[in-house]
Design a protein around this nucleic acid. Structure first.
Length: 260
DNA sequence: ATGGTCGATCCTCGA
């Protein structure tokens, strides 16, 4: 099963590239973030024409997440089920069961600046994700794959210059501890498990020629429970997709699992 | 040369 996460930075602006990429790469499950669409505007028909079912959780101008699957799309749920009565104000998480795998497609809040309200929202959001996984899955025994744009670089290898990010979001202790709590549940960062190298990124700022200078961050993650992680065949970041006409600022992360 | 982006919305904000 080929599972992909990709922050497309507006599905309206990116639909042509997304369709072409699906034709070429043939994912079984494609999780996309930042559709920046209402549910009414979501192009279900375009994905159906390629052989995929799709579910979307959107709000319009910002955020928006979708799961596109050709191996089933069941028990779809938007938002958190963590026992709290305050729903997430943003459309940032969508769950579905695809081919026997419980999939979560996440667009973690950016945080903006350390100690900004949005930074605290980000930390709370990651805590809610943890609580939701504990309440609704067994992340040791079940097939669970949590993917998305986490807006956190898990360690210094995941940032082009730790010095340049000192005092910024994405690299602070509390953000990294929030990711460590998820891996502490049993989830495995499958890309990092396969590659030790620094310098392998999934996002590059549009500004200042960052991509061409190799100044990026690895913030798009595939976190797999042990039954899935042990079945990992292959994982890569398709950095070629960051090139060419009107790319997203994120590259897709592709993970293949042999799950019978 | 000492800058350099993009997308959606509305002329600024969020990333």
């Amino acid at each position: 099963m080929r599972i992909v996460t990709w922050n497309v930075n507006s599905l309206k602006a990116r639909l042509g590239r997304v369709e072409a990429w699906i034709r070429a790469v043939q994912p079984d499950v494609l999780c996309i973030q930042e559709t920046k669409m209402t549910d009414e505007a979501f192009p279900h028909a375009a994905f159906a024409a390629l052989g995929y079912e799709s579910a979307h959780h959107g709000e319009g101008r910002w955020n928006g997440v979708a799961i596109i699957s050709r191996v089933g799309l069941d028990d779809v749920r938007a938002g958190f089920a963590d026992g709290r009565d305050d729903p997430d104000p943003d459309a940032r998480i969508l769950w579905a069961t695809c081919g026997g795998v419980r999939v979560a497609c996440c667009y973690v809040p950016n945080g903006r600046e350390v100690d900004h309200d949005h930074y605290h929202y980000k930390l709370d959001w990651l805590g809610r994700l943890y609580d939701d996984l504990v309440a609704n899955t067994d992340p040791v025994a079940d097939r669970v794959v949590v993917v998305g744009d986490f807006n956190v670089a898990p360690d210094d290898r995941d940032v082009w210059s730790p010095a340049a990010f000192e005092g910024s979001t994405h690299v602070t202790g509390p953000e990294r501890e929030a990711i460590d709590r998820l891996t502490g549940l049993g989830l495995v960062d499958v890309f990092r498990e396969r590659f030790d190298d620094a310098g392998l990124y999934s996002w590059w700022d549009y500004r200042a020629g960052a991509f061409y200078k190799r100044q990026g961050m690895r913030i798009d993650l595939v976190l797999a429970s042990p039954p899935a992680a042990e079945a990992l065949d292959f994982v890569l970041i398709d950095r070629n997709e960051r090139k060419g006409e009107k790319p997203s600022d994120h590259a897709p992360v592709v993970a293949d699992f042999h799950l019978g």
